[in-house]
Structure formats: structure tokens, C-alpha cells
Design a protein around this nucleic acid. Structure first.
Lengths: 125, 125
DNA sequence: TTAAACTCCGTATATAGGTACAGAGTCAAC
DNA sequence: GTTGACTCTGTACCTATATACGGAGTTTAA
């Protein structure tokens, strides 16, 4: 049982972020006694840890919400994982192509003898 | 000599985008006769093509602005390219680590026999 | 008992890169 | 000479993920 400040500190996140996640429906509504202060327990801590880990894996908050609602169904969770995997691989190969292009460009810069022109700028123009 | 609509169509971009780039100082101010209509020539077309190509390579608009202002100095341009290259490589290896983690997770899902629990969810909780 | 620290709510701000819209003016074709 | 397409400016809105702030109420510690 802790207030929002303690909770946020424990998880090294911002108080505002906790309220933001609550507004987004990512965590269960905390108890609110007469004072109006939110009171959290371990359920909330665990939910927030889940969110933070999933986020670190590159899931968006909307995807995190889906993951949490799918908890039971392993097949559905796996399918989200596979979809994410496809996106990641696509991103990787996009970046590798890009790497090659910029690599070539900077190489031609290195080889350039003319101080008054730049092969990169020329190739963009 | 063309109005903004023709220009935008030629480059397959939005009219608003052209004005947006103008506000950001990315393109030279076009002529504006009495009518107030912007009039563009090939200089503008080339500048916009430059912007679009650089953007496609992953440069931000602020970086594009720098690139354009550096036009003369090949060494400076090369150095921006190399910096971008470092970022790209870092991103690639981040994504490759992520790929491995999610790959492992989905594999353990595939191997899972218990329909009432999911290894991915469990590893996040 | 009072001051500091904490929390509340609602709203504004931030980033990046645009997109959309209202209301007015202009141009071109028939 | 009128209609429809085009353009103008200025401002608001969009996504995603928060962060910051004002003004009021609450709790805690000395």
C-alpha cells in the first residue's frame, strides 16, 4: 500500500506517467479513500513492471494493452510476437540498405580530390 | 515557372508540405507577383528533390538544412554522413538484439504445452 | 500548529513532420 | 461574366509518449 510518489520512485518513473497510464486504461484503477489520494498495491506494481518490460521490447502502449487483454491465449500472444518480429526484420533490412548507401557516399567523399565539390551533395542534387 | 499546385503534383507531395518547408527555411522564397501566388522555377524543384532524397536516407529536416548550408565543404558533409552511419549501425544492432529476444519468446510459445499459460506473458510478469 | 512535502484535477507543452480547415481572394475556361 | 478550380494566410489538429504547471486540498514531521 503506497501513494503515487512512492510507487513512481520504486519503479523509477514519473508520477505523471503513472496517471497517464491510468488514463489510457493500462493499469487497474487504484483505491481512492476519502482523501482522494490514489493507493497502490503489488498488483499495480506488477502491471507497471509488465508495461515497462514490454515497452523496452518495442511494443507500443496500444500493443501493451492488447497483450494484457490477451493474457490467457498463448497463440494470440505468439502471433503478436511474430508480427513484431516481421516488422523488426523489415526495419533491419531497410537500415542495412541505408547503411550501404551512406557508406558508399562517405567513401566517395574520402576519395574526392576536388575541394570545391562534394560527391554526396552532388548525388543529392 | 509554375504555381504551388503544379509543383507539388510534379514532386508527388502535398501543397501544404511545400509551404511547411518554406516556413522552415528549407527552400528559397519563391517569387510572389501582385496576385500573391507563389511562382516556382527549377531551382525550387531541385531543392525539393534534394530534400526528398536526403529525407529518404533518414536525415531529419534539421539535418537537411545543415547539409544544404554545408554544400561547399565536403569534409563537413562526410562527417555528417559518418555520424549518421554510426547511428544507423547502433540502431541495427539494437534491433538485432530485440529480434533475438522476441524470437526466443515466440519459440517458447510454440513449444508450450499448457493452454492456460503463456511463456511470453509469464516472462513479462 | 504550522510549514514542507505530497497529491489532486485539468489543461498546456514538447517533439517531428506534417495535414486540415475557414474564409477570402484570384485565375482560367466556357 | 460567371463558375469552378486554385491559392492565400493563419491557426488548429494529428500521432505517440509523456512532462509541466497552476491552484487547491491533504498529510506528515518537527
Amino acid at each position: 500500500m503506497k501513494t503515487i510518489g512512492k510507487l513512481a520512485k520504486e519503479l523509477s518513473i514519473n508520477v505523471e506517467t503513472v496517471r497517464f497510464y491510468e488514463r489510457k486504461g493500462l493499469i487497474v484503477q487504484p483505491l481512492k479513500p476519502d482523501s482522494g489520494y490514489r493507493i497502490y498495491d503489488n498488483t499495480h506494481v506488477n502491471q507497471l513492471k509488465f508495461i515497462l518490460k514490454a515497452k523496452a521490447l518495442g511494443f507500443t502502449l496500444d500493443e501493451v494493452a492488447s497483450l494484457m487483454s490477451l493474457s490467457g491465449s498463448c497463440a494470440d500472444v505468439e502471433s503478436m510476437g511474430l508480427q513484431k518480429l516481421r516488422l523488426i526484420r523489415e526495419k533491419i533490412s531497410d537500415l542495412q540498405r541505408l547503411e550501404q548507401v551512406i557508406q558508399d557516399m562517405t567513401n566517395s567523399c574520402k576519395a574526392n580530390q576536388d575541394p570545391n565539390s562534394c560527391p554526396i551533395i552532388n548525388s543529392l542534387s
